[in-house]
Amino acid sequence: MKSSAADRLFSRPAAVASCVGFILIGMVQSLYGPVIPGLRHEFGLSPSAAALGLSLHFTGGVAGVLAFNAVHSRISNRALLAWSYGLMAAGAAGFALAPNWPLALAAAFLGGLGFGGIDYGLNQLFAVGFGDRSTAMLNVLNAHFGIGAVLGPAIVAWLGPDGYPYAFGACAVLAAVLVAAGSSGVRTRVSDAPPASAAAPTASRALGLSRVLVGFLVLYILNVAVEAGVGGWEPTHLETVGYTATVAASATSLYWLMMTAGRFLVVPITMRHAPERILAVCAAGMTVCLLLTLVKGVAPVAYAGVGLFIAPVFPTGLAWLNSALPQARRAGAWVIAASNVGGVAAPPLLGVGIEASGIHAVPWLLTVLSGASLLATLRLIRLTRRSAS
């Protein structure tokens, strides 16, 4: 069903500001890795200690998603976004100015809370805020995260790792501007009330709906595991099979760029095809591409193909979730939190498998995860059809 402009949650300027907000959170998340040499020099840290900044950021992200989900029914959409941007501004400024490492870690967690609020809030509101264009707009929104993720390392390359306070300071200023600009033009209502027929499902239907939610959690964990696994282990695998470090790094950058491009490219497709069909094609496509990474001559291109196919999964899955579980308006928070947990857990768990099997096993391990994601997608299609009947 089409929605009129009056029914939409976002004015056009607010939608643009939201895309800028996703550029912001993409930049902040992507800064922590490249600035590790500067952090080690400034605070005298070991590599593992310096990496705690990103870990605290992700921990704060999970906490932020769950916390803002818990209070969303009691505060307006504008308040949710304003508080989230405010926390991001405070966290980024605190990280830039922290005189010691414990305070820097506290600031990373604080900024992570804001990150989680922005990630949850905008994804949730875009999923319901644009009528039949919500799937397309979710892909556009999340594509801007990729733009930010590319800009962050570029800024560090320009400033140098020791210039990290300026990079985080710039993010703090942008977040402060968005406290007002990013929330004005957003309607204050929380969400539409669920249909009366959906308010009190039968016991058997409730069980079916809970299985659907679990299915989405599994799907998101598996997909983020593949996403993070490729991003973390692609360069090592390519170097192991004979590519130079420069080629391996460039191929990894191409993977992330294809993730950004894929979200823009899928927009017209979302206007003609159902989200579940798009996700099934994506899962099959990335599984085939991961199998092709076993062939040395095409491995870099195959990894780029994985980025292209996995790109629509996160935003398109949220649109599918919203249509499959309209009674559970906050279900999106759980899958977004699960995606953050998957991003933290997947690389080290894959590392355990790689230690046991060798670097050459990377494509096989990732293919197993992707194949499981394809099976989870097909299972979800059956579950959602059964729940809808």
Rank of each mutant, 00 (worst) to 15 (best):
residue 70 A to N: 04
residue 113 L to Q: 05
residue 115 F to L: 11
residue 65 V to N: 01
residue 90 A to V: 15
residue 108 A to P: 03
residue 66 L to G: 09
residue 105 L to F: 05
residue 96 A to C: 08
residue 96 A to S: 10
residue 67 A to T: 09
residue 92 A to N: 10
residue 67 A to W: 06
residue 72 H to A: 15
residue 113 L to F: 03
residue 104 A to T: 06
residue 69 N to G: 10
residue 91 G to I: 14
residue 105 L to Q: 01
residue 105 L to N: 05
residue 70 A to D: 09
residue 114 G to D: 06
residue 92 A to D: 12
residue 63 A to F: 10
residue 63 A to G: 06
residue 83 W to M: 11
residue 107 A to H: 00
residue 104 A to P: 07
residue 95 F to H: 04
residue 102 P to C: 14
residue 112 G to Y: 00
residue 108 A to Q: 02
residue 89 A to M: 11
residue 79 A to W: 12
residue 115 F to T: 05
residue 80 L to W: 01
residue 80 L to I: 10
residue 95 F to C: 14
residue 77 N to R: 05
residue 115 F to Y: 05
residue 97 L to C: 06
residue 102 P to S: 12
residue 67 A to H: 01
residue 69 N to K: 08
residue 102 P to D: 13
residue 92 A to Q: 02
residue 81 L to K: 01
residue 103 L to Q: 02
residue 63 A to R: 00
residue 107 A to C: 10
residue 77 N to M: 11
residue 85 Y to T: 13
residue 64 G to F: 04
residue 63 A to L: 12
residue 121 G to Q: 03
residue 78 R to K: 11
residue 86 G to R: 06
residue 91 G to V: 14
residue 93 A to Y: 03
residue 108 A to L: 09
residue 80 L to N: 02
residue 64 G to I: 07
residue 101 W to V: 12
residue 84 S to K: 00
residue 117 G to H: 04
residue 92 A to S: 14
residue 105 L to G: 03
residue 81 L to E: 04
residue 113 L to M: 07
residue 68 F to S: 03
residue 91 G to N: 07
residue 112 G to I: 07
residue 113 L to I: 12
residue 62 V to I: 14
residue 84 S to V: 10
residue 71 V to Y: 03
residue 106 A to K: 05
residue 106 A to E: 07
residue 97 L to N: 04
residue 88 M to I: 11
residue 91 G to D: 13
residue 65 V to W: 00
residue 111 G to Q: 07
residue 97 L to F: 10
residue 92 A to R: 00
residue 100 N to E: 12
residue 109 F to L: 12
residue 68 F to G: 02
residue 92 A to K: 03
residue 90 A to E: 06
residue 73 S to W: 10
residue 102 P to V: 15
residue 78 R to T: 15
residue 120 Y to T: 12
residue 92 A to I: 08
residue 77 N to L: 13
residue 74 R to K: 11
residue 65 V to A: 04
residue 96 A to H: 00
residue 120 Y to L: 15
residue 119 D to A: 11
residue 75 I to G: 00
residue 66 L to P: 04
residue 106 A to S: 12
residue 89 A to Q: 08
residue 85 Y to V: 14
residue 111 G to W: 00
residue 67 A to Q: 06
residue 105 L to K: 02
residue 66 L to F: 11
residue 114 G to A: 07
residue 109 F to C: 07
residue 111 G to T: 10
residue 80 L to C: 07
residue 101 W to D: 08
residue 67 A to I: 14
residue 92 A to T: 13
residue 110 L to M: 10
residue 108 A to H: 00
residue 121 G to M: 14
residue 98 A to V: 09
residue 65 V to F: 02
residue 91 G to Y: 02
residue 84 S to D: 07
residue 110 L to D: 05
residue 69 N to A: 15
residue 95 F to D: 10
residue 69 N to M: 15
residue 82 A to C: 11
residue 87 L to A: 10
residue 121 G to D: 05
residue 96 A to N: 08
residue 89 A to H: 01
